[in-house]
């Protein structure tokens, strides 16, 4: 590998890392400010993680899920690790479906829907291991709107994220 290509690869890696940090921080801030005020809550962090997992594969998806989950757990008064585990589970599914050529199709939309269900269920299960009662009734009521919002968010976010993927695709994420 030439010095120039190595330098370009290093730049792409750094850009990738900064971009990930920025997107995850923005998503965390949204979850701590705007989103709780909405009547129905889209899972921005989940959609980010799932979309990136579909774009880049399991390894980067898991890294994003871990970082995003830690940020949400730091912000939350719930059991630490609940968000991280839930996001990791969702990334695991999405990363397994990763294809080289990304497009918004039925499979991808299905992955977002299934990931939403897994994310909510794993989070509630993690919550139930503590003194908090698992609000399965609330989950049942919220799941429909959450699915719809997350799918819409996925359709909106997939294009700019695909563009970012192309711009930072020279190297994979190294932390």
């Amino acid at each position: 590998m030439s010095a120039r290509s190595r330098q370009r690869g290093l730049f792409a890696t750094q850009a990738n890392m900064y971009m990930a940090a920025l997107l995850l921080l923005v998503a965390t801030l949204l979850h701590g400010t705007l989103i709780p005020m909405l009547p129905w809550r889209p899972d921005v962090m989940l959609v980010l993680v799932v979309t990136w997992s579909l774009l880049r594969g399991l390894r980067e998806g898991l890294l994003w899920a871990f970082a995003g989950g830690i940020l949400l757990d730091l912000l939350s008064g719930g059991p630490f690790g609940a968000f991280t585990i839930a996001l990791l589970a969702a990334a695991l599914l999405a990363g397994a479906v990763h294809r080289a050529a990304f497009h918004v199709g039925l499979l991808q939309v299905g992955v977002v829907a299934l990931s939403t269900f897994i994310y909510e269920a794993v989070y509630l299960a993690a919550l139930a291991t503590t003194e908090h009662a698992a609000s399965w009734g609330l989950l049942a009521r919220n799941l429909g709107p959450s699915l719809l919002l997350n799918i819409l968010l996925f359709i909106v976010l997939s294009r700019p994220l695909a563009w970012l993927n192309r711009k930072t695709a020279a190297e994979s994420l190294e932390w």
């Binding site: 965390t28 400010t33 005020m37 719930g78 908090h132 919220n142």
Partner: peptide, 22 residues
């Protein structure tokens, strides 16, 4: 403050979980 159905006062941040009232 955080939790289901809470509205804004002098709020800095809310709990990201809809299942917690804190």
């Amino acid at each position: 403050r955080g939790g289901q159905g809470l509205v804004t006062g002098r709020v800095v941040s809310r709990d990201p979980s809809p299942y917690l009232s804190q």
